[in-house]
C-alpha cells in the first residue's frame, strides 16, 4: 500500500529525514516511535505533502502512485488522512460545512455525485457517536475554542467521516487524559479493517496499550534504526531511547 524508499527530506535547507524506508500493507498498524527531533512529524508532513518540506531524494509510492507528483489535496482524496498533532482553528467555517466540503471534494475526485443532505446528516450522527463527540462541537467553527482533547477527538471524527485507506495519527495521544485516550483509541480500532492501514506516531507506549501495533519502528536521526513487534514498544518504555542511540553509534 505504502512504499517509502531511501527518503531524504529537509526544511529550510536542513535535512531531517536521512534515508528512511518503510513498507505498509493493508490491514497493518505500524507504530513509529523515537525521541524528540528524530523526524517523526516530518515523516507525516512529507507523506501528506506539506509544502514546507522538500524531498531531496528517494520515493514515496502509495498504491502504485508516485505521491511526490501529487498535490496535498490529491493525496488526501486518494485516501491518506493525517490526524494533526496541532489541529488549527478556522474561525467562521462551521464543522458541518467544512466536513461537507471535504466529503464532496473526495466524492468529486472519485466521480461520485455530491452527498445528499439526509445521508450526510445520518453519517455525521453515526460518526459523532463513535468518538462520543458533543453535538455542540460540530455546530461550532472548525476547532475554534475546542480544548486540546476535543481537537484530537475531532480529528478522529473527521477520519471516521472520510474513511481513509491510510491514516496517520501524529501524536494523537498527547494532551489526552486517560478517558479521552480510550475513546480515541476505541474509535481508531472500530475503523480498522483488512483494507486500511494505520501509522501511529507516538512518544509513549501508553497509546499502544489501546491500539495494538503489528510493527514498531524506532526513528532516530532521520532513519528507522530498529524495527520489531509490539514488544519493542514495551522495551522502549522500560529502557528509554538511550540504548538505541548507543546501538546506532556502535
Amino acid at each position: 500500500m505504502l512504499e517509502i524508499k531511501d527518503l531524504h527530506a529537509s526544511i529550510n535547507g536542513k535535512e531531517i529525514l536521512k534515508g528512511l524506508s518503510l513498507s505498509v500493507k493493508p490491514g497493518e498498524i505500524h507504530a513509529i516511535m523515537g525521541p524528540n527531533g528524530s523526524g517523526k512529524s516530518t515523516l507525516s508532513s512529507v507523506i501528506t505533502g506539506n509544502p514546507s518540506f522538500e524531498v531531496t531524494q528517494g520515493s514515496i509510492v502509495f498504491e502504485s502512485k508516485d505521491l511526490q507528483k501529487m498535490a496535498p489535496e490529491e493525496r488526501a482524496n486518494e485516501g491518506i488522512f493525517l490526524s494533526f498533532q496541532y489541529p488549527v482553528e478556522i474561525p467562521g467555517v462551521s464543522m458541518v460545512n467544512f466536513m461537507r466540503t471535504a466529503i464532496n471534494e473526495q466524492r468529486k475526485y472519485r466521480n461520485l455525485p455530491p452527498i445528499s443532505a439526509t445521508d450526510f446528516l445520518r453519517i455525521m450522527r453515526e460518526k459523532k457517536a463513535l468518538v462520543e463527540m458533543d453535538n455542540k462541537l460540530t455546530n461550532r467553527s472548525v476547532n475554534e475554542g475546542f480544548s486540546g482533547g476535543e481537537k484530537k477527538r475531532n480529528e478522529i471524527f473527521q477520519m471516521a467521516m472520510l474513511e481513509p485507506k491510510l491514516a496517520i495519527l501524529d501524536e494523537t495521544d498527547s494532551g489526552l487524559d486517560i478517558d479521552a485516550l480510550r475513546i480515541v483509541a476505541n474509535g481508531v480500532n472500530k475503523l480498522k479493517s483488512p483494507e486500511n492501514a494505520t501509522i501511529v506516531i507516538t512518544h509513549y507506549q501508553r497509546l499502544l496499550e489501546y491500539i495494538i501495533p503489528d510493527y514498531v519502528h524506532v526513528l532516530y536521526d532521520g532513519k528507522i534504526v530498529k524495527s520489531g513487534g509490539k514488544e519493542l514498544a514495551m522495551e522502549l518504555e522500560t529502557r528509554g531511547y538511550d540504548w538505541i542511540k548507543q546501538e546506532v553509534v556502535v
Binding site: 498535490a71 489535496e73 482524496n77 488522512f81 478556522i90 460545512n97 467544512f98 467553527s141
Partner: peptide
C-alpha cells in the same frame, strides 16, 4: 498557511480553502 494545508489535507484545494475561509468570515 497552516489553515490552508489543514484544508488541503482534507481534500480541499487551496483555492477552495481560501473561498471557504473568506466565505465564513
Amino acid at each position: 498557511e497552516d489553515q490552508i494545508f489543514y484544508c488541503n489535507q482534507r481534500g480541499i484545494s487551496s483555492e477552495d480553502a481560501v473561498g471557504l475561509i473568506v466565505n465564513g468570515y
